[in-house]
Design a binder for these strands. Sequence first.
DNA 1: ATAGGGTTAG
Length: 825
Amino acid sequence: MYVQLSSFLLVPTYKGRHISRIFPLLQGRCLLFSAAANSLHRTSDGYENNAKKFNFDRLFKSCTQLEHAKRLHAIVVVSGKADNIFFSSKLVNLYAYLGNVSLSRHTFNQIAKKDVFTWNSMVSAYVRSGHFREAIDCFYQFFMTSGLRPDFYTFPPVLKACKNLLDGMRMHCLVLKLGLEWDVFVTASLVHMYTRFGFLGSARKLFNDMPVRDMGSWNAMISGYCQNGNAAEALDVLNEMKLEGITMDPVTVVSILPICAQLDDTLNGMLIHLYAIKHGLEFDLFVSNALINMYSKFGQLEHAQKVFNHMVERDVVSWNSIIAAYEQNDDPHTALGLYYNMKPTGLNPDYLTLVSLSSIVAQLSDSRNGKSVHGYVLRRGWLLKDVISGNSIVDMYSKLGIMDSARAVFEALPVKDVVSWNTLITGYAQNGLSSDAIEVYDMMQECNITPNQATWVSILPAYSNVGALQQGMRVHGRLIKNNLYLDIFVGTCLIDMYGKCGKLGDAMSLFLEVPKTTSVPWNAIISCHGIHGHAEKALKLFREMREEGVKPDHITFVSLLSACSHAGLVDEGQWCFHVMQAEYGIQPILKHYGCMVDLFGRAGHLEMAYDFIKSMPVKPDASIWGALLGACRIHGNIDLATFASDRLFEVDSENVGYYVLLSNMYANTGKWEGVDKVRALARDRGLRKTPGWSSIEVNNKVDVFYTGNRSHPSSEEIYKELRNLTDKMKSLGYTPDYSFVLQDVEEDEKEHILMSHSERLAIAFGIISTPPKTPIRIFKNLRVCGDCHNATKLISKITEREIIVRDSNRFHHFKDGVCSCGDYW
DNA sequence: ATAGGGTTAG
């Protein structure tokens, strides 16, 4: 027999760890062979003791690869043991354990006379390999056709396989019918089943009625509460357990740690860590993984890293956790380094590794590796199998600004959940493509997907961005119905939406309703007053915020400083800048410096602005020089402008706006060669002028107008109305200001160019498509043109309409021939 | 001989 078997059993890759413990004297390539042969021999010869010693169980457990299992199977067959229920059922289990359930099934089918153990093995094989549907089917086949009675070994796996409450309750009935509820394992499994479907009451009742509870029962109840986010109840059960003198085991610790993370309870988290050390659970794989995740959520990366370093054994979850820890705490470089360190360990990245990786490349703005990540996920088939993988790729492309790819991946997803939609909507909104965001949101509605908080938080800013007040109000109504409008994030978005759509009063009354414990809603309302030019009110709100003990953050001060600069409140702006550092210890960032330069410059204190730049402790970037340049344009200081623009282009700005600004200054002074120079520079750097557009919402629909656009259905009427208005304006003393025409063309042509600016097209469309005297609200993506500003004042007088124009900078409220900005902007 | 309860996420 030895000779016969040896041909099967040349095992070149076998890791001899388990076997060499059993056979310290036998080592080498044929270990498995010897052990198997010995074991079989003695068993069949009736050497009971030896059979136990060299038991097959150890051998089965030592099979770590499918090849080993197949060889073992061969031994069983060759030695005529294929009909032995024990060996065959073991093989059924083994194949399932090694991930090949079809071989399990095949082996199972070969068994002529199946007993309860055999059926149990098959059922649990399906469950272990994740084939829940098949497990349930197999169970019913067992129950209905085999003539055997399922026993208390059958139900724990079957209950795990139930994928909805109905299945679970049916099983519960069967358990009662078969009188198996006395078994701790069975009842604990029922408890777990009920918690999985959120039926915590039923679970708790079963748990309370248990006459005996083992560790697994306690853990089922505690983890049930934890996974449903019921931290308080989980802690109650934990205390009850402690009172009965039972201590936590690794499973309890692992269930409870995410709760500490969720509650941001650093103290208890560390106490449990100490407990784990004291009870020798420190090096448990699951415990360590859970600790890494918890410390990561606390933001304590050193602790997470320490746990990781001290681990004796690491699996994919360990690596995923430590990579995600750095990725989510804004350290993509370290995270990427860890990813590369993972490779040589021989562990294969799984889909969650790639989820982190996609976020890493997005944070690094690494488009090239973004494509590789996409390819990797695609090749593995994860994109089709798992929504989360797909969503993470859509998110990655959105963050990289490649919306076409994001859209393509989204379209190809076989299953889209609410997160998929949210990700795409947020992607468009964050990339400034508001109308695309709205279009996707409308599609989502048509597909009957129920939006959630994240949806509102991304669609509302898109509405405020194009001034879709009516649609925004519709969402507001819906939120009132769902009682979500007082949610701090949604509420803030609504405030922002009303503020940016010109309804400052509505923004304010909402602000009074939402909880105001953090700076978030305060920042929104302060910034809204700022863009409306109400700097005094913004300052008053800031004082109230201080009185209520809410700590301002750096965004609060950006809003305040910008409010002061738009209103020309130089002293107040300086006061804010001082308070920010002296009272709140907030170090100014470039945005704050930019606001200060703007504050001085706009008010005409160009020297002060320049001195301020020289006194800055950080290197000025393009936005700083851009602010100075903008001020120079307002106050016509060509020399300083030339100086500022030289500095500006030294720092290699990517912002087209500054090139346009400088080119405009040259154009205004007739220096066309300067214009050409700047345009060439922008072209060399691959920058294209942002096309100007204006939008207006009429009848729940947003219309967008580009400068000179004639493709609108009402184009004829719009130009007719504009010619009509221009005539009336001229009789009121309007003369076109050609300094805003940036092309070197004839005068007639210039007048036409001014008339077809996008803001004027939108206003004219508003006039012809709404009833007389209705207010008109216009949005412009760039700054409003100076000549259009003058013209709009007159149009508001001629048509007796309020015209509210929001540009990239602030609001202009035109009424009776004057603008709320007092021509200071 | 066969079983339950556990960590990572867009």
